[in-house]
Design a protein around this nucleic acid. Structure first.
Lengths: 212, 212
DNA sequence: CATGCTTGGATAGTGACACTACCTAACAAG
DNA sequence: CTTGTTAGGTAGTGTCACTATCCAAGCATG
């Protein structure tokens, strides 16, 4: 298929597809002539994936490129490729180093990882982006005078554990490794809005139950 | 205290504080003279809240203003004020109306609300922003060929239910209604990055457990 | 084989956003 | 009196994700 059809079938304008090609999110098609290229089903699939990551997952274009590249990098081992999405997490502002709230948060989080028995993160040389984002968020809570201690975080941690187990079950249901990688990226990124929306809906339900 | 001290104690530059004043995120201070205003502890508190919403919660400045205004609006009832944060949810692109994937998603979500017995959302005249965001996210999954049916979503919904119960317990622990409202806003918005970070960390742990 | 449309490729422009810089006149503080 | 700070205003910055326009080279159609 050519550009117009790729645009038609994906719902992405030709101008935006050209932009994605320039940014390296999409491989160029097979050149037919000086002014024509042929795109295949895998281009369509990858375009849809990129679109979903960017529009629904709010992943920056540059990060989406890295995530997709890492997912396709055959030189990494399976665990590393599965972690590609996580490692490229668009991370908020660095947790201001020189600040008592950040120190409190850092201690709470360290304690939390111990209590949850999550040895992998503790074994890393430097904290992952997710770890730093967690510290920054807890520090903000502390700064506003909310607890943010281990007892508050622990139930959330246990729920996260259960989410991870069922997510990884879904990943392992895919047959090939390549499909597993894509499933991991999709699950990690696209289930985030699902989870957050469900939580907000549940808040409204529970609030209605209690206060109406 | 005056501008410089407010800036010092909050860690927000004077230029940014002026910007927030212009945008109506902060009440002007008490005028002392033509060139001086006096700010109080509540200005500091509100500034820290606004900062946390914007920097950690990624809430747009205009939305943060609305959320804070609704939380302080005495003319609304308690349930409405508690919902202020939810209703102002920065919502992704509208779920493209004329699209089979969106239709599938719409049906799945309707079925999900029934199965979870969430009557409040079903009783609304028009779906809440969270509801629309959920449909858009599920539609993206469907478009990529992932299930996105009720069976997949149900465990997530049940977890969200449990999150909401423990969140509302925390809200009810606050003594005054005003404190409850602020707690609801803070919990809704600032626990989102906490939850997402924990989930990503848990993914890494579970993946290490299975594949290393 | 003329004519109008499409393509790849390049460059420049747009609009939203969250600041940030600079200016001025009026004070304040030592 | 000198030096610094403030409120208030306007204009500029940098990032981001597109979007618009142009061009020369085909391709498709009558």
């Amino acid at each position: 298929m050519r550009l117009a059809e790729l645009s038609e079938r994906s719902g992405v304008s030709t101008a935006t597809i050209k932009y994605y090609l320039r940014e390296g999110l999409l491989q160029p098609g097979r050149r037919i002539s000086a002014t024509q290229s042929e795109y295949g089903e895998d281009h369509l699939r990858r375009l849809r994936l990129a679109r979903a990551l960017i529009q629904i997952g709010k992943v920056p274009v540059a990060t989406a490129r890295e995530v997709i590249a890492a997912a396709e990098d055959e030189s990494l081992d399976h665990h590393e490729r599965l972690g590609a999405a996580t490692l490229a997490l668009p991370l908020g502002p660095e947790p201001a180093a020189d600040d008592p709230a950040t120190e409190t948060a850092r201690r709470s989080v360290a304690e939390l990882l111990r209590r949850l028995d999550w040895p992998f993160e503790r074994g890393l040389d430097e904290p992952s982006p997710a770890h730093r984002a967690l510290i920054a968020a807890v520090a903000a809570l502390v700064r506003l005078g909310y607890p943010g201690d281990v007892e508050q975080l622990l139930p959330y941690g246990r729920l996260a554990e259960r989410l991870a187990v069922s997510d990884l079950d879904l990943v392992e249901r895919e047959k090939t490794r390549t499909e597993q990688i894509e499933a991991a990226v999709v699950l990690t990124v696209l289930y985030e809005p699902v989870l957050l929306s469900l939580r907000r809906l549940a808040h409204a339900e529970e609030s209605a139950r209690r206060f109406l």
